[in-house]
Amino acid sequence: MDALKSAGRALIRSPSLAKQSWGGGGRHRKLPENWTDTRETLLEGMLFSLKYLGMTLVEQPKGEELSAAAIKRIVATAKASGKKLQKVTLKVSPRGIILTDNLTNQLIENVSIYRISYCTADKMHDKVFAYIAQSQHNQSLECHAFLCTKRKMAQAVTLTVAQAFKVAFEFWQVSKEEKEKRDKASQEGGDVLGARQDCTPPLKSLVATGNLLDLEETAKAPLSTVSANTTNMDEVPRPQALSGSSVVWELDDGLDEAFSRLAQSRTNPQVLDTGLTAQDMHYAQCLSPVDWDKPDSSGTEQDDLFSF
C-alpha cells in the first residue's frame, strides 16, 4: 500500500511530472533526481522514447528462454528487412502500455495491464526491452520488442512496467475491499429498513384510530445511509488515497477476473515476472533518469539497429 499512497501523494503535489519523457535525446524537461521519484509518476504514465523492432507469436506467457528466442527472431526479421526502425513513445501506467508513433502521434497499440504476463531486458541484446501480452483480438500470446538507447534504459522500462503492474494490483485490492464494505453496509441498511417496515402498523389501523404518522421519526431512520450505499452501487469504487486528485481509476471486468485468478494461483500475485536478476534490479533502481541518457562506457552510441 505504500507504493499506492506515495504515488497518489506525488501526483497530487505535481501532476505535471508524469508528462516528462525519457530517452528522447535531450528533449525532456528537468528530471527527478532518483528512481523513487520517477516511480511516483506512474499514475498518469511515464513516457519512454524507443524504437519498435516488431512482434512475434509465442506459445507460453512467460520465460527467459522463451523471450530470448522470440527477441532473436524479431531482431533477425528487422535486420533482414533493412528498413529504419519506427520511433515510438511507450506510455507506461497502472492501466497498461500505450504505444504511439512519434511522427504521426497515431495510436499503435493499447495493452491493458492485466494482459501483460512478462517483461524483460534481454541478456543477449542488452539494449532490447520486450514484453509478452495476450492479444486483445484473440487468445494468442505476442512478444513485442523495442530497441532502447542503452542497457540502462531497457532495464528502466522493464522495472517501470513491473512497478505499474504492482500498483494496478494494489488498486484492485483496495477497490475489492471498498466494494465488500459497501455491499455489507448496503445489506445491513436493508435489514434495518426491513425491520422498521415489519414493526410499522398498517396504514388502515392508523387511520381508524385517528393517529398521525410521525414524519420526524421517519426522517431519523437510516434511510439516507441505505440510499447512499445503493444509489451508486454500479459505480466502481476508487482508492481513497486518490481522493481529490485528477486521476480516475476504473476497474473493468477483465482486470477484476484476471487479478482474482492471480490472487488464487500465485504466492506473490502482485509481482510481474521479469528477466532481471536481483543485481540488475538493484543497479537500475539506483540510477537517476539522467543516467539513462548518458552514453555507455563501451563506446559511442549508434542510432541504428545494427549497432548491437
Rank of each mutant, 00 (worst) to 15 (best):
T267F: 08
S297M: 07
F146E: 00
P61T: 12
E257Q: 08
D191C: 02
K72Y: 11
M124F: 05
T56V: 07
S175V: 09
A241M: 10
L251H: 10
A18F: 10
S224Y: 10
N232Y: 04
A70Q: 02
A121K: 02
A241S: 15
E178C: 10
T300L: 11
P32M: 08
S175E: 01
S243G: 12
P269C: 02
G190N: 04
A185F: 14
S21K: 15
K152S: 06
H125Q: 00
K204H: 07
D296Y: 06
D291K: 10
V290M: 08
K179R: 15
Q279G: 06
V75R: 00
C286R: 07
G190M: 02
K51L: 01
K87D: 04
L53Q: 00
M233E: 05
P202I: 02
S117F: 06
N211S: 07
A121W: 05
S67G: 13
V192F: 06
K127Q: 01
R73C: 13
K91I: 06
T225Y: 05
C119I: 02
D234S: 08
S288T: 07
S117R: 12
D126P: 00
M281V: 11
L147S: 00
I97N: 00
L42P: 11
E235M: 04
W292L: 13
K84C: 12
S16V: 07
W172R: 02
A258I: 05
I74Q: 01
Y52M: 11
A221Q: 07
H125F: 00
D293M: 11
S93T: 11
Q279N: 11
A168L: 08
P222C: 06
G254N: 09
G45T: 09
E188N: 03
T104F: 01
A78W: 04
W22E: 05
P239Y: 04
V75T: 02
Y283K: 11
Q163A: 12
D273R: 06
F146I: 00
S21A: 07
V92F: 01
N138F: 14
L17C: 11
A3G: 10
S227E: 11
L251F: 04
R261F: 05
R182F: 12
N138Q: 12
A278Y: 09
S288K: 05
H144L: 10
L276V: 15
Q302G: 12
G25A: 04
K166V: 03
N105P: 06
P94M: 12
P237G: 07
D126C: 00
G275W: 04
E301Y: 12
E301G: 08
S117K: 11
G54E: 00
D273W: 03
A208P: 04
I132T: 01
C119M: 01
A168H: 03
L287A: 05
L90C: 02
K30V: 11
Y131L: 01
Q136G: 11
K51S: 06
R95A: 01
Q264V: 01
R115P: 00
P15R: 13
L213E: 14
T209D: 14
Q197L: 04
R182K: 13
V290W: 02
G189C: 02
Q285Y: 04
G275A: 10
D126A: 00
V247C: 14
S14M: 01
D296H: 10
I97C: 12
L47K: 01
L193G: 14
T300C: 10
P202G: 14
P237W: 07
K220L: 04
Q136T: 13
Q173F: 10
L31P: 14
D214M: 09
P32S: 07
T158A: 13
S246Q: 08
L305G: 08
P15W: 06
L212T: 03
K179F: 06
M124A: 01
V248P: 11
D303H: 06
K176L: 05
V192T: 06
N102W: 08
E65R: 08
A221M: 07
N105Y: 09
S117T: 07
V111P: 06
R27I: 13
M233I: 09
Y283R: 08
M46A: 15
K179M: 11
Y118N: 03
K62N: 10
E301N: 14
V58D: 01
S49C: 14
L251N: 07
L305C: 08
P269M: 02
R29G: 13
D101G: 13
I71C: 04
H144N: 13
S260Q: 09
S81V: 03
D304F: 07
T230A: 04
P239I: 08
Y52S: 07
A76I: 11
